[in-house]
Amino acid sequence: MLIHPQIDPVAIQIGSFGIHWYGLMYLLAFVQFIVLGRLCIKRPYYQALGWTTKDLEDLLFAGVLGVVLGGRIGYSLFYMPEFYLANPLSILKVWEGGMSFHGGLLGVILAMVWFARRQKTSFWTVSDLVAPLVPFGLAFGRLGNFINGELWGRPTDLPWAMVFPLVDAIPRHPSQIYQLLFEGILLGLILWVYARKPRRLGQVSGLFLLGYGICRFLVEFAREPDAFLGLLGLGLSMGQWLSIPMILFGIYLLNRK
Rank of each mutant, 00 (worst) to 15 (best):
Q13H: 10
F101L: 08
Q176H: 08
L89S: 14
A169M: 08
L36Q: 13
M99Q: 00
V68T: 04
P132K: 09
K93N: 12
K197P: 10
M162C: 10
M246S: 08
F208P: 02
G250C: 10
L186F: 15
I12Q: 09
F140Y: 15
G202L: 02
F30D: 05
G18E: 08
D226E: 14
F228P: 01
Y194C: 04
K54I: 09
L138I: 12
G74V: 07
R256W: 13
G137E: 10
Q179L: 04
W114E: 01
G97I: 10
Y45K: 15
D55Q: 03
Q13G: 12
Y178A: 00
I12R: 07
G37N: 12
Y178V: 02
F17N: 04
A86T: 12
L28A: 15
A195P: 02
I19D: 09
C215P: 03
V35Y: 14
L186E: 09
G141E: 11
T156L: 03
P9M: 13
M112C: 15
A86R: 13
I14A: 12
M99C: 01
L187I: 05
R142I: 00
R223H: 09
L186S: 08
C215H: 10
I41Y: 05
G66R: 14
L151R: 03
M1D: 11
T121A: 01
Q13W: 02
I41G: 05
S100F: 06
R38C: 13
V64K: 01
G239I: 00
E183A: 07
V134D: 05
V94P: 09
L229V: 15
L49K: 15
S122R: 14
V10S: 08
G71R: 08
K93Y: 13
F78P: 04
P81D: 12
Q32E: 13
A11N: 11
R172Y: 10
K120Y: 08
L232R: 13
S76H: 00
R196C: 11
L209R: 04
L158R: 09
L65R: 01
G107W: 12
G104M: 09
K93T: 06
L60H: 07
M238C: 06
P165V: 01
F182H: 01
A48G: 11
L232D: 12
R216I: 00
M25D: 04
Q47L: 12
F208K: 03
A131G: 07
L65Q: 03
G74A: 02
V163W: 01
L201A: 15
P159S: 04
L69D: 03
L201Q: 15
P155F: 03
F115Q: 03
L180Y: 06
P44G: 06
P165E: 10
V108P: 02
G137W: 06
G202A: 00
G63E: 08
I41C: 07
L110Y: 07
L2S: 03
I41M: 08
I34H: 06
A161G: 15
R118M: 08
V134W: 03
R154K: 13
Q13R: 14
I190W: 05
S127Y: 05
G23P: 09
D157A: 14
Y45C: 04
Q240D: 13
Y26A: 01
Q176D: 05
I190A: 01
F30K: 04
Y22M: 05
I73D: 05
L92W: 06
